[in-house]
C-alpha cells in the first residue's frame, strides 16, 4: 500500500522542471475560450462590476454622510478609504472566481483536465497555467479599477502605480488558495460555504471601517484572515504610507501563494492520476 502511494506520487511529481511551453498551452486554452464565443466574455466582464458598484454606493454615497476619516494619521474622504479596499477585493474575486468556479467545473464536470493529462502536460503545469490566467484576469480588473480611482481623484497616479504590483500578488495568493479549494470541493453546495466566507471577509477586513474600531478579539480574528493583509498592503501603497508593516502583509500573501500552489499540485495529481 505504501509503495503504491509512493509510486503513484512519483508518477509525475519527480519529473524535473516545468515546461513554460506547456504552462503557456494551458493558458492559451483560456484565450481560445475567449475567441470561441461570447459566453466567457460575459463571465469576465460581469465580475468587474461588483466592487465598482460598492465603491460608488458605499464609498461615495454613504461617504457623503460619513464625511472625512482619519487613518494612518491622515485625514481623507471616506471614499478614498474604501476605494483601495475595493481594489484588493476585485483582485481577490477575479482570481478566486477563475480558480474556484471555472477550475472546479473543468476538473469535476467537463473533465477538461483529464483530456489535458493525456498529453505531455503535467498536473503541476495545469496548476501554474490556471493560476497565471487567474492572475491575468484579476489584474485586468485592478488595472481598470485603478484607472477609475485616479479619475475620481481617490488615488494619486504614483500611488496607483505602486499599488498595481501589490494587486498582482493579491491575485496570485487568492488564486493559489482557490485552486486548492477546487480540489477539495465535493459539489456545488460547498460553494455556498466559500461565498459566505468570502462575503464575511469582504465586510469586515478593514474594508468599510478601520479594524481598530472593533473589539480587540475581533481585531485579532480579522488579522488572521487573508483579505485584511491584502487590503492593508494595497491601501498603504496607494496612499503612500510606507513602513516595515508592508513586508509582513506581503510575506503573509507569499506564504498563501506557495502553500496554495504546493497543495493544489499535489491534490490535482492525486485526483487525476489515481
Amino acid at each position: 500500500m505504501l509503495t503504491t502511494l509512493a509510486a503513484a506520487r512519483s508518477m509525475r511529481a519527480s519529473r524535473p522542471g516545468l515546461s513554460t511551453t506547456r504552462v503557456g498551452a494551458v493558458i492559451s486554452r483560456n484565450v481560445g475560450a475567449l475567441r470561441s464565443g461570447p459566453a466567457y466574455w460575459i463571465v469576465l466582464v460581469s465580475g468587474f462590476f461588483e466592487p465598482l458598484l460598492y465603491l460608488l454606493s458605499i464609498g461615495v454615497g454613504v461617504g457623503a454622510l460619513v464625511g472625512d476619516l482619519t487613518v494612518y494619521g491622515r485625514t481623507m474622504p471616506y471614499a478614498a478609504f474604501v476605494a483601495p479596499a475595493m481594489l484588493a477585493v476585485s483582485a481577490m474575486t477575479g482570481a478566486l472566481a477563475e480558480t474556484t468556479f471555472n477550475v472546479f467545473f473543468k476538473l469535476k464536470y467537463v473533465k477538461t483536465y483529464e483530456a489535458v493529462l493525456a498529453t505531455p502536460v503535467r498536473p503541476v503545469e495545469i496548476a501554474f497555467g490556471e493560476l497565471t490566467w487567474a492572475t491575468v484576469r484579476g489584474s485586468f480588473y485592478t488595472a481598470i479599477f485603478l484607472g477609475v480611482m485616479v479619475a475620481l481623484g481617490l488615488a494619486p497616479v504614483g500611488g496607483a502605480l505602486a499599488a498595481f504590483p501589490a494587486t498582482i500578488l493579491v491575485s496570485l495568493a487568492f488564486g493559489a488558495v482557490g485552486l486548492t479549494i477546487s480540489t477539495l470541493m465535493r459539489g456545488w453546495q460547498d460553494f455556498d460555504l466559500l461565498t459566505t466566507g468570502q462575503f464575511a471577509m469582504f465586510l469586515f477586513s478593514g474594508t468599510f471601517s478601520p479594524v481598530q474600531d472593533y473589539p480587540a478579539w475581533a481585531e485579532i480574528l480579522i488579522q488572521i484572515t487573508p483579505l485584511y493583509h491584502a487590503v492593508e498592503l494595497v491601501r498603504r501603497l496607494s496612499l503612500g504610507v510606507y513602513g516595515p508593516g508592508l513586508l509582513g502583509h506581503a510575506a503573509y500573501l507569499l506564504v498563501m501563494l506557495a502553500a496554495g500552489l504546493w497543495f493544489a499540485a499535489r491534490r490535482m495529481e492525486r485526483l487525476l492520476c489515481p
Binding site: A25, A33, T112, A115
Partner: peptide
C-alpha cells in the same frame, strides 16, 4: 488517447478543440 467518455472542451469550437490540443503537445 481516445477516452471512453468524450471529454471535449465545451468552451471551445470544434477547430479550437484541435488547435488547443496541438499546443499541449508543443
Amino acid at each position: 488517447v481516445c477516452p471512453q467518455l468524450d471529454n471535449l472542451d465545451p468552451d471551445l469550437t470544434v477547430r479550437e478543440n484541435l488547435t488547443t490540443y496541438a499546443r499541449y503537445f508543443g
